[in-house]
């Protein structure tokens, strides 16, 4: 195990034994006899799930794995007959059906889907269904969800995003106060800053960069 001295963080490598014993694990840790072996580079962590101790490894870099209820920032990449295909920075492509966009029933043969959402449009959406075997289902039929008509868009690494998320409250307040901007932290490691104009958004970007502590964006 590599030990980062100052921070006292343990980092495990793929194939490394994290722990020995009979403990429940998440999918990134596999059991070989009584050894618990990590399958990725990350930080081992004990969690509590339904009262039980569960061993997991927090990956240093990961794509987004959808979870029901998450707010994500998606990018329309394809238009189907009755749905849109949305890239959500994940191994799965999300599906956004018409029924989750429009409130009234429509005749698909009479409308053009691209009049509502076109390829390249960004949406703030919520994952309403996902079970690892089928593509995640999105909705934008809620308040604060929908198409983003303007804003500054950032894609972060999972680690940078977690850093932002841990300081979410101060960040939101700071951006609102200093830059007069709203900031959306999509669970899929994407960030959208929406202000009145580009000036405000660039100011918000500066605050995000300060929070991250380096020029990584």
């Amino acid at each position: 195990m590599i030990k980062v001295k100052r921070e006292k963080i343990k980092i495990v490598l793929p194939g490394e034994v994290v722990k020995v014993g009979d403990i429940k694990t998440t999918t990134e840790v596999i059991k070989l006899d009584d050894k618990l072996v990590s399958t990725l580079i990350g930080i081992p962590k004990m969690k509590r799930r339904r009262g039980e101790r569960v061993l997991s490894v927090l990956p240093l870099k990961t794509p987004y794995i959808p979870k029901e209820g998450d707010i994500v920032i998606g990018k329309i990449v394809d238009i189907g007959v009755t749905n849109w295909l949305v890239d959500i920075n994940s191994p799965w492509k999300a599906i956004l059906p018409i029924s989750e966009v429009l409130s009234k029933p429509v005749n698909v043969s009479k409308i053009e889907l691209k009049d509502y959402l076109n390829i390249g449009d960004l949406i703030v959406a919520r994952v309403i269904a996902f079970d690892l075997t089928r593509d995640p289902l999105l909705t934008i039929k809620e308040s604060r969800l929908g198409k983003a008509t303007r804003g500054l868009f950032l894609e972060l690494s999972s680690w940078d995003w977690l850093l932002l998320k841990s300081k979410e409250k101060t960040l939101l307040r700071g951006v609102k106060k200093k830059a007069n901007c709203n900031i959306v932290l999509g669970a899929n490691y994407r960030v959208l800053m929406i202000g009145k104009g580009l000036e405000e958004e660039l100011k918000a970007l500066e605050i995000v960069r300060e929070t991250l502590g380096r020029r990584s964006t």
Binding site: I119, G120, F153
Partner: peptide, 13 residues
């Protein structure tokens, strides 16, 4: 599993 597309968000453009 999906392939990443060569699409840039219109907002970014």
């Amino acid at each position: 599993m999906s392939r990443i597309e060569h699409v840039i968000p219109l907002i970014k453009q």
